[in-house]
């Protein structure tokens, strides 16, 4: 038996965390706790991304998802809670149906994933020889339109710009959608 390969150890640690908290999100009925578990799950996923060599994506995941999205989520929770703790019970039948369907899908996906030999991972000897390559600069150059890994392929300047504009539009639209409506009486006063 070989010595422990530490990335595998951390993979199982983080994936266990991520899955456990994802299940916790599913099972919890308190919306704020759900949000809390979700943050943890996402944080663990960010760790998985670091492990897969995508440290920039992981950092972005932390920064945007955890820092931004979830704050918005909780913001929404506070604005929409009519009681102190919002609990909405789901029918037991829904649970059963959901778990049946979900279980079937999970089985299929996992079976499919493990049925491909190339996806089983590399040999230990190869893994020990890995020297991590930083990915920030290639990603940055890719977003600016120049691919350093494969110069023959097109960069991502156009999608990047589209996403930027899209984001701007969405934010304006969201602000418009969410702004407080004036009550009828105040309009009449004007």
């Amino acid at each position: 038996m070989d010595s422990i390969y530490w990335p595998t150890f951390f993979f199982y640690l983080f994936s266990g965390l991520a899955c456990a908290f994802a299940v916790a999100v599913l099972l919890s009925s308190n919306i704020v706790r759900m949000a809390f578990y979700l943050v943890l799950s996402l944080g663990a996923t960010a760790g998985l991304m670091f492990l897969a060599g995508a440290e920039f994506v992981g950092a972005m995941q932390l920064l945007i998802y955890v820092g931004g999205t979830l704050v918005l989520l909780i913001f929404g929770v506070m604005l929409t809670s009519q009681e102190r703790f919002v609990v909405m019970k789901t029918w037991a039948g829904d649970w059963v149906k959901a778990f049946l369907a979900g279980g079937a899908l999970l089985f299929i996906l996992a079976y499919a994933a493990f049925s491909i030999p190339e996806w089983r991972g590399i040999e230990r000897t190869e893994a020990d020889a890995i020297v991590a390559q930083p990915t920030v600069t290639p990603i940055a150059m890719g977003l600016l339109g120049a691919r350093t890994d494969d110069p023959s392929r097109a960069g991502y300047l156009l999608p990047f710009e589209i996403v930027s504009v899209h984001l701007l539009v969405v934010l304006i639209g969201a602000a418009y959608l969410a702004r407080a409506k004036r009550s009828r009486s105040s309009i009449e006063k004007i």
């Binding site: 149906k97 959901a98 369907a101 979900g102 079937a104 899908l105 299929i108 499919a112």
Partner: peptide
């Protein structure tokens, strides 16, 4: 649920 079941059905 339809989506999930549909996906399973598609795979099967």
């Amino acid at each position: 649920m339809f989506i999930v079941i549909g996906t399973v059905a598609l795979f099967v």
